[in-house]
């Protein structure tokens, strides 16, 4: 009996190793937000295009997406063309230029096109903190009543878009 006791740490470790094995390669990006079911937090941000100050009340009252991006983020390059497709299909997207520099962002939009209705500059990342963003790209679905209904971490593409679209009511 005493002998078996000394195998306990090994057994615990092996169980943990199995759990790890099962998790490898899974999509760790999918993580529901604590903000789901709540209103978009208050903010005061300046738009990139016209330096106009936007507040919470300026948000659309139809379903829309809030997309966090930055020119420093490699995955955002990959996501960008798909966002343009969405914009062409009439999906309203509010862009949050997250921890970025204005000049770089303007250059990026000039080169790649602009899928966003409005782009708000979050240079210090304060709005990102309020929204619980862990990185870019990250997208929130907001419904017609201003509630956050879904959060998607990582790139939006043709594969995961149908699921995200399902939340846009």
């Amino acid at each position: 009996m005493r002998k078996l006791l000394f195998f306990l740490p090994l057994a615990a470790f092996l169980i943990l190793a199995v759990v790890f094995y099962l998790q490898i390669g899974k999509d760790a990006q999918y993580m529901p937000s604590a903000l789901v079911g709540k209103k978009v937090p208050d903010f005061t941000l300046v738009s990139l295009q016209d330096d106009f100050v936007y507040m919470h009340d300026d948000l659309p009252n139809t379903p829309y997406l809030i997309n966090f991006w930055g020119t420093w983020c490699p995955a955002c390059h990959i996501e960008h063309p798909f966002l343009i497709e969405l914009a062409n299909a009439g999906v309203p997207i509010i862009g949050i230029d997250y921890k970025d520099e204005k000049a770089l962002a303007e250059q990026w939009l000039e080169q790649k096109g602009n899928p966003y209705q409005v782009i708000l500059m979050d240079e210090m990342g304060s709005f990102g903190v309020d929204m619980g963003v862990t990185g870019a790209p990250e997208t929130f679905v907001v419904d017609g009543s201003g509630m956050i209904v879904y959060r998607h971490q990582g790139v939006i593409n043709a594969e995961n878009w149908p699921e995200i679209k399902g939340y846009m009511k």
Partner: peptide, 14 residues
């Protein structure tokens, strides 16, 4: 390994 998300993670590679 990419099993957890975090601001620090490196690109995930199974």
């Amino acid at each position: 390994s990419g099993v957890l998300t975090s601001v620090h993670s490196f690109a995930a590679d199974p």
